[in-house]
Design a protein around this nucleic acid. Structure first.
Lengths: 138, 138
DNA sequence: ATGGTTGCAAAGACTTTGCAGGAGG
DNA sequence: CCTCCTGCAAAGTCTTTGCAACCAT
């Protein structure tokens, strides 16, 4: 998802488009990994020092309510936020150096079908993270 | 995973097996959904009123450190805990109510092989989260 | 103009830590 | 027995809320 799409959705839902919100959205989009509110605040602050931590929280809550962002659990039992992926969101992550490679063609549609019939869930999207060692670290 | 396995792992790691810890572990195992620390505390308390909330937190931290339990994000942006399924870490998550179902047989080993040869990564584990609507919310 | 927004400070919620008494191995 | 564990209370974090000034529309 691109920042202008998110901004349009905001405006369409009756929220005002302030420079602080734009900075927060762009920073979130610019990060590959999930950001905690505190981490996002620090990153935003480098670009736009007018943004306060409270506004980060408030903006994340709005984006979350609109379904534009989703919440994941980070390693330290803290909630992290990422922009909700368009189709999917599949990563190959090196446990040693932290490098992240994106890939498509994850081919879990068959699995999705099977689980849908077993559990009754309507499956809309997914996220697959594979962990291992990259060629340099192996 | 069964409670006696978890208890054995605890003892083997040098932790003592107290009735409070046993109650907490059994309650966590008895719940199909992820429990927040507060929810787990309430459930445990019904079975064993000697368990304090602080002990719930401490036990969850130990289980998490040993990798016996994993953390998921619940609907209200609060961390929930579930016992980690055997090998991997696969979830089916309702975007509406936040319910989490874990499953096995995710069958990504073929994909892992293909990616390994394409990227040179040595793949060790993975995490697959599927998002959708549960039968109640659909 | 005007209603939503912002930063600040304070309050509220969640989680961890210090301590004295108690229990597991 | 000795060490780790427990509950309680207090401290420490994380997140939300009240308020006056401010800005997008």
């Amino acid at each position: 998802m691109r920042s202008d799409e998110i901004i349009r959705r905001l405006r369409r839902s009756g929220y005002k488009v302030t420079p602080q919100r734009v900075s927060i959205i762009k920073t979130l989009l610019g990060s590959r990994e999930a950001l905690t509110p505190a981490a996002l605040f620090q990153k935003v602050r480098l670009v736009d020092p007018t943004v306060g931590e409270v506004t980060v929280y408030r903006t994340l809550n709005i984006l979350s309510e609109l379904g534009l962002v989703c919440v994941v659990s980070t390693a330290e039992n803290v909630n992290g936020y990422i922009v909700r992926p368009g189709g999917h969101h599949d990563h190959l992550i090196c446990s040693e150096c932290g490098k992240v490679v994106d890939f498509r063609n994850c081919n879990v549609s068959e699995l999705e079908k099977r689980l849908a019939s077993e559990t009754g869930f309507v499956i809309k999207e997914h996220r697959l993270d594979l962990y291992g060692l990259c060629p340099q670290c192996a």
